[in-house]
């Protein structure tokens, strides 16, 4: 089965149809997807601003990171689960949608970016924990994260207009 065929099959599974046809389920899932944004993306943005030297200037970056990640993890759990459910209900239409593809691409980029930060910059955070000016690489990661997350939100909102 082709990927497109699989998407069409997914859209017609009983679970997907049940969500799409329910009066309350779809709005509830979509609302949760969007209103988890402050908890998921918003918390990450706060840490990005610290790395860029734009907020929490000389506060320990590692403590802010730990605290922010603690909350954003539950946010992303909600965003991810509701996102998968939303995809199921529109999989066929989402497959060929340019904004949906761009959103997935940006999410992949953000994943790579997070791994890069965790492996290269996180282990050495103690060296510049209190500095308001963080290493160039860390600032690049933060800048990329900020721009790509905005892109994810823009693509996600815009694709809904095309369904």
């Amino acid at each position: 089965m082709s990927l497109f065929g699989w998407c069409q099959w997914l859209e017609h599974t009983p679970a997907a149809l049940a969500i799409a046809e329910s009066t309350w389920l779809f709005p509830l899932i979509e609302g949760s997807h969007i209103l988890a944004l402050p908890l998921s993306v918003g918390m990450i943005v706060i840490f990005d601003l610290r790395l860029l030297g734009l907020a929490f200037h000389s506060d320990p970056a590692s403590r802010l990171m730990k605290e922010v990640l603690r909350w954003s993890k539950s946010g992303f759990a909600i965003t991810f689960i509701t996102g998968v459910l939303l995809f199921m209900t529109h999989a066929g239409k989402a497959y060929g949608n340019a904004f949906f593809r761009a959103k997935l691409l940006l999410l992949a980029l953000l994943g790579i970016n997070a791994v890069v930060y965790q492996t290269i910059f996180y282990p050495k955070m103690a060296e510049w924990d209190l500095a308001s000016r963080t290493p160039l690489g860390a600032r690049l990661c933060a800048g990329l994260s900020l721009i790509a997350w905005i892109g994810v939100i823009v693509c996600g909102r815009t694709m809904a207009y095309q369904f």
């Binding site: 969007i34 209103l35 944004l37 402050p38 908890l39 993306v41 918003g42 918390m43 943005v45 706060i46 909350w71 905005i150 939100i153 823009v154 909102r157 815009t158």
Partner: peptide, 17 residues
């Protein structure tokens, strides 16, 4: 609508914190 969502993400994150 996208600007509305980006703005609420940052604003509600501040409220949440």
């Amino acid at each position: 609508q996208s600007v509305h969502l980006v703005g609420l993400t940052v604003f509600l994150a501040a409220i949440l914190v």
